[in-house]
Every structure is written in structure tokens, then in C-alpha cells.
Design a protein around this nucleic acid. Structure first.
Length: 567
RNA sequence: GCCCCGAUAGCUCAAGUGGAUAGAGCAUCUGCCUUCUAAGCAGGUGGUUGCAGGUUCGAGUCCUGCUCGGGGUACCA
């Protein structure tokens, strides 16, 4: 299965282990373990797993190394773990290590290490959590890519927010990212769009015939028709094929789409249109090249692609015989060729589940042409099911039975909309209950996060009024209660979460993490007073909450959500 | 028919490459504001992870078969 090979190739390209080297502490513990293995004469060839345990009672980090070794060493894992733990080199960073059944080794960091996180966050500030793994490599993220036949719907919203957030994360870790929107302005859909405008235009001029059922029914078509009428009067009455209809529609709709995206704080670098691929001869060029290497053949008057030989399943038609035009595959392949020609190191395509069948053919085409398809990463997200009054809303652009993204933003605002789209994994179907989103917008999880940020800002304002200086020379060793250490630990985890987001390309891990740090902070806040009579303790705690505020703000910025000063 | 995704608490969903006692929010019940923001905190109720097998020290996660839901499977995009 070549597709699987491609996937593993990608996994290697986005290798987690490589990124984890950026996490000092994990690397440090791994180093300790390697020495301990050597002292025991054990050999272990895989990379050693050092991860965060589910529960804090199991320490700050844990490894299953002894369990993994049990089989080859033919010894009980608990004994192996004991031997490893005894052979661990001395270190000032680890307070203690313990063995727990069935053979885990858990590491507890020294408070000093946790406390140092505050110093680091405060000195790095708005850049805390950045990693330089991208090294200015160029990445293209293609998303939305909806044809301009109508306003963006809630369904598009998921993809828009997902793509933009991934782009933000990639930029954050040092990639040079381009956001690209691909659209098809040459196909059948756009012809129907033009005709839809034409018939509405006729109606405005007094025509009383029936508007075609299979044309775009939306009210926006009438507005566009009105615009055509203002510009051209009745001159085009007998000219349904006049391209004016299509062009005016396309411009007006794109204007709308861009505005909607802007409201979500999404701005594209490039809009790439299919038509140009024909005009520049790139479609033809791909056809010629495929023919030249014998990857295509003629049958029944059509031109077929030997997809089966390049990782696809069945052979596919590239050029139709019944009509003299290409199938969508050919320009899609040509389009992806331009991505390579434009020199991207990594290409991320985001599609809805309805397109999942098209990309294997595109990849097969690229492979046939000799491109390194491991550079292309395809993300498929499942659909959004909209629930209104307890019932599913079946959406169709054609029938204009949709909820527009604009309407959603009107109702819940940018922050809630973005957060809702991001809080679920892209592989799961997203049930978006409109009524719930509206009526409960006060009880929304996003407010919980923002509230934590606002609360801290409030504390810092109070501190400023009292002219309390905490930025330097405060005694961080005073930060030692259970809830405090837990908060410090969570701050440290931020970088690791970025790594996980990168390796999985799923921003959802970040939303989960931000919930966690907000919870940890709220708990701390309830138990411990920041500003008190104890000056030294006050200064230390101010530094701590400032660090939390920075992490929250950085995380929210990555999600494209505002971090309010007060609520 | 075949392919892809899903099925986890009453509801919406988590659980990075197989790890420890499967976690949150909403809903519901009980407490907590003379104190930096109660949009908060603490606790209770709630589970055979769709069903049946298998792989192994160990499965929500991997494999096989089935059930249900979504999306594909065109010389539509």
C-alpha cells in the first residue's frame, strides 16, 4: 500500500522525536536513562519514551523503558526498573525517581526546576513557547478553497479556522507560511452561477417565467442581478451566456467571502484560480509529461491515467471524450505541480470529508511525475452538522438552505466561533447546536479561559496601583505549595503541547491544554492570595501569575482568540 | 458491492506513537463570596469505551467479523 508508505514517510518528516529534543527536560531524562542502561549493560535500540503521566501523582515525567525491556531481557519489569533507577546518574534537576507497578519509572522534578520556569517565561515573554524547528522552511497551507458560488457556510468555517490556526502554529515555530485559497472559476458550477444571475436579472426586468430549480436560489443572486441591471440596463436581456453575469457574481461573492474571513481574523496570501492553469499551459504540460513517460493512454476516445501503477486504485480519466475538456483531476495535479515549482518544503492540504477520494489520484499523479509526495500532507476533516431547534439543518448552497458563517459570527462572535471549531478533533463529526451556542454563550468554555486571563490582569493592575515590583530579584523558592507547584508544572508543559500540535497537526491539543492551565490557575487563585501583607511572597506570586498570563495570552493568540484585560 | 471517518457518562466531546484508577464541559444534587473578578472553587450522582472474537505483560487505541451513522466510490468538483 503506497499510501501507507507515504503516510509513514510523512510521520518521519514530522518526527516527534526530533522535536522532543527541543524539550530540555525530556532530553535530560532520556540522557540519564541512557547512562543507566549502559551501566547495567542493557541495550535498547528504540527511542526511549519519556512522557507526561496522566496523573500528577505519578510524577512530572514517566518512562515505560523497563516494561519495554522486559521481553528481550527476560527479566521481570519491576526488577529491571529497580536496576535502572539505581544506576541513574546524580542530577540536581530530579528530586527523586520511583518505580511503580507494573514497571513504570516516575520522575519528580526539584521545585527549583519548576520555579525557574517563571524566570524563563518572564524573560522571553510574548515569545515564550516558540521553537525554531521550521528554520524558515516554506510551508503552504491550502484551505477553504470554496468556489465563489455563494456565501461561506458554517461548514466552511471549520476548515477556515482549522487551516488558519495550523498556519499560526507553523509560523510560531519558525516556518514561513503562505495561506492559499484555490478556486475553480472555469467549471460547470460557475456557469450555473452566471445563469442564475441572468434569470434573476430577467425577472427584475419583468420576466415572469419560473426560476430554474437547479440554479442558485439565494437572495444574494438577486442583489447581484440588480447590480448588473444598474450597470447594463436591459442590454443583456437576450444574452444569457454573457460573461458579465458570472464575473460580477464572482467579484461580489469573493468580496463577501473575504469579509467574512476577515471577521475571523483570517487573511489569505494567495488566491489561486484554476483558469490560470489552462491559460499558462500548465494543464497541457502535465498531460504531455504524463504521456511522455507512459503514465497515460487513450481508450474509447478519452485519455486515461494509470493511477494503479502509482499508488492509486483504478485508472482514471484525465480528458473526457464526451465533451472536449479535462476532468477535475488533471488541473488538480497541475495545481499541485505548481506548489512544487514554487519551492515549498511542505504542503498542507485541508479538505472536507467529501473530497477524500480525490487526493490519492493527485498524489499518484505527482508521484508519476517524479515529485516527492512526502512533502504533501493531506488533512481531512469531518463535516459540521448544524442543529437548530433540536433538528439537523441540511445544508445546500444551491438551495440556499444554509446558515452562513456571517450569521454565526453575528450570533456568537469571533472568539466563540473560532474556539468551537477548534475544540473538537477534526476527525470527529462536529455537532454545532446553534441555539446552545447563542443562549449559552455566557457559559462557554472560551470564557472560562479568557476569564483566567482577565483575572490575572486585574491582579496585576492592583499590584501596579500599589507600586509592587516583582520583575527582578524575587525569591521564587517561596513558590512551594501543592497548587503552586502544579501551576508551575503546567506552565512548563506549554512547549511540549506545541510539539504535540506540530507532530499531529491538530490544534485541538492546545485548546485542551489551555483549559487545563486555566483550571490549575483558578484552583490556585481560590486557595492562595496573591497580594498580601507578606511582601516577598507577594512579589513571588505576582511573578508566577504574570507567567501564567503570558502563557495564556500566547496560547490564545495562537488560536486567534482575544485575551481580554477585563471581563 | 467496495473504500474512508466515526460510535466513549443523560447530552457535546478528550485521552500525542498500545501503558497505571478512561477524563472534561453541559445538565443534575450539596456546600463556599466582610478578602486580588463567584464568568470561580470543592464535593456527589453518572461507564460492560456499539457488539463478538483475536494479538500481549497491558487494548478506548492494533487485527478480523458484524451493527448503526456520516462521506465517497462518475468522462461531477
Amino acid at each position: 500500500m503506497p499510501l501507507i508508505l507515504i503516510c509513514t514517510g510523512l510521520a518521519r518528516r514530522l518526527n516527534l522525536g526530533r522535536f522532543l529534543k527541543r524539550i530540555q527536560m525530556i532530553d535530560h531524562i532520556r540522557g540519564l536513562l541512557i547512562s543507566a542502561l549502559a551501566r547495567n549493560g542493557f541495550t535498547y535500540n528504540d527511542s526511549i519514551q519519556v512522557e507526561r503521566p496522566k496523573q500528577e501523582s505519578f510524577g512530572h515525567y514517566t518512562t515505560n523503558l523497563a516494561l519495554a525491556l522486559a521481553k528481550t531481557l527476560r527479566q521481570p519489569p519491576l526488577e529491571i526498573a529497580q536496576k535502572i533507577i539505581k544506576a541513574l546518574p546524580e542530577t540536581e534537576l530530579i528530586e527523586r525517581a520511583e518505580v511503580k507497578a507494573p514497571g513504570f519509572i516516575n520522575f519528580f522534578l526539584c521545585p527549583k526546576v519548576l520555579q525557574k520556569a517563571v524566570t524563563e517565561v518572564l524573560s522571553i515573554g510574548a515569545d515564550y513557547g516558540r521553537l525554531n524547528v521550521g528554520k524558515n522552511q516554506r510551508v503552504q497551507v491550502e484551505f477553504v478553497s470554496a468556489n465563489p458560488t455563494g456565501p461561506l457556510t458554517v461548514g466552511h468555517g471549520r476548515q477556515a479556522v482549522l487551516g488558519d490556526t495550523l498556519a499560526r502554529i507553523l509560523e510560531w515555530v519558525g516556518y514561513q507560511v503562505d495561506r492559499e485559497y484555490y478556486y475553480n472559476d472555469a467549471g460547470r458550477q460557475m456557469r450555473i452561477l452566471g445563469h442564475s444571475v441572468y434569470w434573476r436579472y430577467r425577472q427584475l426586468l419583468g420576466w415572469t417565467g419560473e426560476f430554474p430549480e437547479d440554479h442558485y436560489q439565494g437572495e444574494y443572486i438577486v442583489e447581484i442581478a440588480r447590480k448588473v441591471m444598474q450597470e447594463h440596463g436591459d442590454a443583456l436581456q437576450e444574452d444569457p451566456e454573457n460573461k458579465v453575469f458570472r464575473i460580477v457574481a464572482e467579484e461580489a461573492i469573493f468580496e463577501d467571502i473575504k469579509n467574512t474571513l476577515k471577521r475571523l481574523d483570517i487573511v489569505f496570501d494567495y488566491f489561486y484560480n484554476e483558469k490560470s492553469l489552462y491559460e499558462n499551459g500548465q494543464v497541457n504540460d502535465v498531460l504531455t509529461r504524463l504521456k511522455a513517460i507512459g503514465a497515460s493512454y487513450e481508450k474509447d476516445g478519452a485519455i486515461w491515467f494509470r493511477a494503479g501503477q502509482y499508488g492509486g486504485s483504478d485508472d482514471r480519466v484525465l480528458w473526457k471524450s464526451v465533451v472536449d475538456e479535462a476532468t477535475y483531476r488533471l488541473p488538480d495535479i497541475a495545481y499541485h505541480v505548481t506548489k512544487f515549482e514554487r519551492g515549498y518544503d511542505l504542503v498542507i492540504d485541508i479538505f472536507g470529508a467529501d473530497h477524500h477520494a480525490t487526493y490519492p489520484d493527485v498524489l499518484a499523479g505527482l508521484q508519476a511525475l517524479g515529485y516527492d509526495t512526502a512533502r504533501v500532507r493531506t488533512l481531512i476533516h469531518q463535516f459540521v452538522t448544524l442543529i437548530r431547534s433540536g433538528e439537523k439543518v441540511k445544508m445546500s448552497t444551491r438551495k440556499a438552505t444554509y446558515i452562513t458563517l456571517d450569521e454565526l459570527i453575528d450570533d456568537v462572535g469571533r472568539d466563540v466561533a473560532r474556539y468551537f471549531f477548534l475544540m473538537r478533533g477534526m476527525k470527529s463529526h462536529l455537532n454545532f447546536d446553534l441555539d446552545l451556542a447563542k443562549t449559552e454563550s455566557e457559559e462557554n468554555p472560551v470564557f472560562y479561559l479568557q476569564y483566567a486571563h482577565a483575572r490575572i490582569c486585574s491582579i496585576l493592575r492592583n499590584a501596579a496601583l500599589k507600586k509592587l515590583n516583582y520583575e527582578r530579584d524575587c525569591d521564587l523558592t517561596l513558590l512551594k505549595e501543592e497548587e503552586t507547584l502544579s501551576l508551575l508544572n503546567t506552565i512548563m508543559e506549554f512547549r511540549e503541547i506545541i510539539v504535540i500540535c506540530l507532530s499531529t497537526l491538530e490544534p485541538q491539543h492546545l485548546t485542551t491544554y489551555l483549559q487545563k492551565i486555566a483550571t490549575t490557575f483558578h484552583k490556585f487563585y481560590t486557595i492562595h492570595r496573591v497580594i498580601s501583607d507578606d511582601q516577598e511572597l507577594t512579589r513571588a506570586r505576582l511573578a508566577l501569575v504574570k507567567a501564567v498570563q503570558i502563557v495564556l495570552a500566547n496560547g490564545l493568540t495562537l488560536l486567534g482568540i482575544t485575551a481580554p484585560q477585563r471581563m
